[in-house]
Design a binder for these strands. Structure first.
Length: 728
DNA sequence: TCCATTGACGTTTTT
DNA sequence: CGTCAATGGA
C-alpha cells in the first residue's frame, strides 16, 4: 500500500514515532515540533497501514478544541468517515461511558452535569444549611478540597485525616456534598472521571469488553494528566492495550490543578518496552528565541531533557523594555504594535500575554485609545451566562425534577414571591426526609407543612414545572427552549436591569433558542442512548461555548500565559516580567516545584513567538491601590544576554529617581561592598515587618535604603535610625 | 423586593 | 484600586 501521504511530510524522529512497533510509545514533543501532526499520522498509520479497525482506536485530549481539531485533520488524512473512532476529551469520553452504563455506574438515567459554578453554589448552600461557619469553611475552599481529592481518586472514606480536625471537617463536607449529589442525580466534572474509573474497576465484564475493543489508546498533552486520568488509561490498557502518548514535561503548567508531570516518567516505568522518541526540531520560532528559551528552561531540575533547534535563521534578538511604570509599559507595547501594523502586518498576528488576567485592563485601555482592535481571551462563556443558565435550569428540572441545583436556581427566578424563609422550610423538609427538594415540596404541599402565601406560591411553582413537562412533551428542542422561556416569564426578570444589560440578556436568550433549534443530536450521543434534550444539556455543560461570538477577526489577541499554550503568533509581547508578579509571589513562597512551573510558564510564553518577541517589566506598578516596586523577573537573568537587546525609554520621559538596575548591568554587577545592604536582600523591620531592599543611596550617617515591605509597601529608611535585620 | 452601602479579597482555568 | 457578594434599610 502506498503510505507516502502518511510519511512524506514527516522528519526522521516524527516518522520513527508514527511507525513505532513498540508496544507503547512516549513522544516527547517540544514546543512547535509537530506534536499534533504526529498524533494524527499515527492514527492514520494504525488504520491504513496496520489495518487496525477504527473501532479499536481511542484518542483522548484535554480540550474540546483539540478533540475537534484532531477529528477534522484525521478526516482529511484518512479520507473516510471518522465516525467509528473514539476521539474526545477525558471528560466527554467518561461522560459517554456513564450514559451508556448508568445502571452499572449507580447513577439515575437522567443524571445531570454540574459545572464549576453549579458546584460552588451547591456547596455554599449546603455548608450554610449544615450549620458551618461560612467564613471558616468557604465554599471555594471546599470545592478545591473536594476536586483535589477526586482528582486523586479518593472517596471520603479513603481520606486519611490523621485526626487533623481541619481535614476531618473538609472530609465531612465532601461526604455531605456527595450525598446531596447522589440523591439529586448530579455529577461534577471530577466525578465524571472518578465514576468512569470506578465503573471499570468494579465491573470486570465491562472492563474486559472495553479492553478487548479499545486496543489502541492515544493520549495528547500527557503531561497534563492527573492521577485519576492516568489510572484510567492504565486500567484500560491492561496487559494487552497499546498506549501512545505525546507530551512535553517542559510545558506542564497545570500542576496547581492536579496535573502530574511525574506521570510522564511514571509511564516508562509502569508500561513495559516503551519506546521514547524526542521531537526537538522546532518549526515555529527563530534561533534567538529558541536559544533563550532553552537556556531558561535548563534551570529546571529533573527534566527528561530536550533541546529545541531550528533550521531557520537566528532572527532578531529578543527585545527587552524596562518601563517606568505599568502605564509606560502598556504605552510601549501598543506603540510597537502600531509600528508593526504600519509595516503592513495584521493585528491578529500579534498577541499580548501576561501572568494574571487583571493585567489585561490596562492594555485594553491603551488599545482602545489608539483604536487598535483587540480581543481578550477568557471570561464568561456563552453557556455560563446567568440568563442562559436560568433558562437551562428549567429544562433540567423538567428532565429531572430531583436536580436540586436547578431547583434552587429557578425556584424564585423570576421572583414569584417565594422568599428565603419558604425556601429554608423546603430545605429543612428535604434534609429531614432525605428527599430532593422537589419531592419535599410536593410532600410539603400534601401534608400541609406549607401554609398561607407560601403554600400558594410553591403550589404555583410546582404546577408550572408540571405544566412545562406536559406541554413540552413532543416539541422540538427549539420549541421546548422557547416554551420554557415563555412559560417561566424569565424575560420579565431582566427587564428591571439597565437597558444595555437587559438587551444583551434577551439577545442571549434568543441565541439560546437558536442554538437549540439548530442542535442535531450528535451520533456519539445517540449511540450512547441519549435523548436530544439530555445531549443538549450535557454539551452545554461540557463545552461551554465561545467566550465571544463573532467579531474577533483581525484583532490583537490578549490572553494569560496559560491560555496561550498551544497557540503561536509572529509577534508576541510578554508583559509584567517582575519578581512577585511573574514568577508570582505565591509560587515563590510555596514549595513543591511551583517556581519550576512558573519557569515552564515563561518557557511556554516565549515559545509562542515565531518572529519577534518583546519582554517588558515595570519598575513601579500600581497594584491593589498602592504602588509597589519590584525587581525584574529572575527569569530575565536566566536568559543569555546575547539573545537580548535592551530598549531604553525615549529621552524626555519623566522618570522617578528610584530605579532598579538595568538587567544587563545587574547581571554582571557583583555586590557593592560599600553598601551595608544589597539589592534584593530580605530584611525585617520592627514595625513594618518583612520586606525586600529595592534601592539605596548615600554613605555613612546619611545612608538610606528603600525597602518594599510586604504589608506596608515601599518606604525609605535612614539606616542610622531604623533597626533593620537581615531575614535571609 | 429592591437598591445602596459596606466589607472582604485580590494567580493561573478546562472540563 | 476595582470587583463581587452580603447586608440592611425603605
Amino acid at each position: 500500500m502506498d503510505v507516502s501521504h502518511i510519511l512524506d511530510e514527516l522528519n526522521e524522529p516524527q516518522r520513527e514515532a508514527v511507525t513505532s512497533d513498540a508496544p507503547h510509545a512516549l513522544v516527547l514533543a517540544g514546543a512547535g515540533s509537530g506534536k499534533t501532526r504526529v498524533l494524527i499520522h499515527r492514527l492514520a498509520w494504525l488504520i491504513q497501514v496496520q489495518h487496525e479497525s477504527p473501532l479499536s482506536v481511542l484518542a483522548v485530549t484535554f480540550t474540546n478544541k483539540a478533540a475537534g481539531e484532531m477529528r477534522e485533520r484525521a478526516q482529511q488524512l484518512l479520507e473516510t468517515s471518522t465516525r467509528p473512532l473514539w476521539i474526545g476529551t477525558f471528560h466527554s469520553i467518561a461522560h459517554r461511558l456513564l450514559r451508556m452504563h448508568w445502571r452499572e455506574a449507580g447513577l439515575p438515567e437522567n443524571f445531570q452535569i454540574l459545572d464549576a459554578d453549579d458546584q460552588q453554589r451547591l456547596l455554599r448552600r449546603m455548608i450554610r444549611e449544615e450549620g458551618y461557619d461560612e467564613n471558616q469553611w468557604p465554599a471555594r475552599q471546599a470545592q478545591w478540597f473536594i476536586n483535589a481529592r477526586k482528582d486523586e481518586g479518593q472517596r471520603p472514606a479513603a481520606i486519611e485525616t490523621l485526626d487533623n480536625p481541619l481535614t476531618e471537617t473538609w472530609t465531612q463536607i465532601y461526604r455531605l456534598y456527595q450525598d446531596y449529589c447522589d440523591r439529586a442525580g448530579l455529577v461534577d466534572f471530577a466525578e465524571l472521571l472518578l465514576r468512569a474509573h470506578e465503573l471499570w474497576l468494579h465491573n470486570d465484564d465491562l472492563l474486559a469488553h472495553y479492553r478487548q475493543r479499545l486496543q489502541h489508546i492515544l493520549v495528547d498533552e500527557f503531561q497534563d494528566t492527573n492521577t485519576i486520568q492516568y489510572a484510567w488509561v492504565r486500567l484500560l490498557a491492561g496487559d494487552t492495550g497499546s498506549v501512545f502518548v505525546v507530551g512535553d514535561d517542559d510545558q506542564s503548567i497545570y500542576g496547581w490543578r492536579g496535573a502530574r508531570v511525574e506521570n510522564v516518567r511514571q509511564f516508562t516505568r509502569d508500561f513495559p518496552h516503551v519506546q521514547t522518541v524526542r521531537l526537538e526540531q522546532n518549526y515555529r520560532s527563530t534561533g534567538n528565541i529558541l536559544s533563550a528559551a532553552n537556556a531558561l528552561i535548563a534551570n529546571n531540575e529533573g527534566r527528561l531533557g530536550k533541546n529545541l533547534w531550528t533550521a531557520g535563521s537566528d532572527g532578531d534578538p529578543i527585545r527587552l523594555y524596562s518601563a517606568y511604570n505599568e502605564q509606560d509599559e502598556a504605552r510601549f507595547v501598543v506603540s510597537q504594535l502600531e509600528q508593526w501594523m504600519s509595516e503592513g502586518r495584521r493585528a491578529d498576528e500579534a498577541a499580548i500575554v501576561y501572568r494574571t488576567s487583571a493585567q489585561s485592563r490596562l492594555f485594553e485601555e491603551h488599545l482602545r485609545r489608539q483604536g487598535v482592535p483587540y480581543r481578550v481571551y477568557g471570561g464568561l462563556r456563552f453557556f455560563e451566562r446567568a440568563e442562559v443558565k436560568d433558562a437551562l435550569a428549567y429544562l433540567r428540572l423538567v428532565l429531572n425534577p430531583n436536580d436540586d441545583a436547578a431547583f434552587e436556581r429557578v425556584i424564585n427566578t423570576p421572583a414569584r414571591g417565594i422568599g428565603q424563609k419558604t425556601v429554608a422550610t423546603l430545605r429543612l423538609q428535604a434534609r429531614e426526609s432525605g428527599l430532593p427538594l422537589w419531592q419535599a415540596a410536593r410532600a410539603g404541599l400534601e401534608q400541609g407543612v406549607l401554609t398561607g402565601r407560601a403554600r400558594t406560591t410553591v403550589q404555583a411553582f410546582v404546577e408550572l414545572i408540571l405544566a412545562m413537562r406536559e406541554r413540552l412533551g413532543d416539541w422540538t428542542l427549539g420549541n421546548q427552549m422557547q416554551g420554557v422561556i415563555d412559560m417561566s416569564n424569565l424575560p420579565s426578570h431582566y427587564e428591571k436591569e439597565s437597558r444595555e444589560k437587559m438587551e444583551a440578556r434577551l439577545e442571549n436568550l434568543s441565541e439560546l433558542v437558536n442554538a437549540a433549534d439548530s442542535f442535531v443530536l450528535p451520533a456519539d450521543d445517540e449511540e450512547a442512548g441519549m435523548t436530544v434534550l439530555q445531549s443538549f444539556l450535557s454539551r452545554a455543560a461540557l463545552e461551554a461555548g465561545e467566550t465571544q461570538g463573532e467579531d474577533w477577526e483581525d484583532c490583537v489577541q490578549l490572553m494569560t500565559l496559560h491560555s496561550a499554550k498551544g497557540l503561536e503568533f509572529p509577534l508576541v509581547f510578554m508583559a509584567g516580567l517582575e519578581d512577585g508578579l511573574f514568577p508570582h509571589q505565591r509560587s515563590v513562597q510555596e514549595s513543591g516545584g511551583r517556581l519550576e512551573e512558573e519557569r515552564r510558564l515563561c518557557y511556554v510564553g516565549m515559545t509562542r513567538a515565531m518572529e519577534n518577541l518583546y519582554l517588558s517589566y515595570a519598575e513601579v506598578r500600581r497594584m491593589f491601590g498602592s504602588e509597589s516596586y519590584a525587581r525584574p523577573s529572575r527569569f530575565l537573568d536566566e536568559m543569555p544576554a546575547e539573545h537580548l537587546q535592551e530598549i531604553r525609554p525615549r529621552a524626555g520621559v519623566a522618570r522617578p529617581f528610584v530605579r532598579s538596575t538595568p538587567v544587563a548591568a545587574r547581571r554582571s554587577a557583583v555586590a557593592d561592598p560599600s553598601q551595608p545592604y544589597q539589592h534584593g536582600e530580605r530584611v525585617r523591620h520592627q514595625k513594618f515587618g518583612e520586606g525586600t531592599v529595592v534601592s539605596f543611596e548615600g554613605q555613612g550617617e546619611h545612608a538610606r535604603v528603600q525597602v518594599n515591605f510586604h504589608e506596608a509597601g515601599a518606604k525609605w529608611l535612614v539606616l542610622a535610625y531604623a533597626k533593620l535585620e537581615r531575614s535571609g
